[in-house]
């Protein structure tokens, strides 16, 4: 079994990344590569689905910090969905909910790209 894997689905103009396993200092470079690929392809509407992520450390959170500026400068965003309480707690401890849209349902995350005023 892989410690960490990412699969990508393109849906309604968004690219959805499904994270599986654990995201720590060892596996974070894989997520960096994936985000760099999306940026190179000019896909800036990004949703990260955390439903199968079992663990995250600050090295994993740091990846999102590293790319968000570039993505927002290109009128895109990273929206996050389907976090377990354990994963959400780490994001919450570091104040990420003030910086990122974090929602439960993936469909809601897609909607936020098109109807942000109804947040």
């Amino acid at each position: 079994m892989d410690a960490f894997s990412i699969s990508r689905v393109n849906k309604n103009g968004c690219s959805i990344l499904y994270l599986n396993g654990f995201l720590d200092a060892h596996t974070a470079p894989e997520l960096e590569n994936e985000l760099e690929k999306l940026i190179a392809e000019e896909r800036f509407n990004i949703i990260v689905n955390f439903k199968d992520l079992t663990y995250i450390s600050s090295a994993g959170l740091g990846v999102f910090m590293g790319y968000i500026e570039n993505i927002r400068d290109n009128q895109g965003d990273i929206k996050m969905c389907s976090m377990s309480p354990k994963i959400f707690r780490v994001f919450d401890l570091l104040g990420f909910p003030t910086l990122y849209d974090i929602v439960q349902e993936e469909d809601r995350a897609i909607e936020l790209f098109y109807k942000p005023e109804q947040k």
Partner: peptide, 22 residues
Amino acid sequence: DMQEYLAQLKVGGLGIYLMKTL
């Protein structure tokens, strides 16, 4: 200062903050 930190979108350096919080 987490608000300032997030405003500046800094990368890394969150570990010690987490350790002291946890």
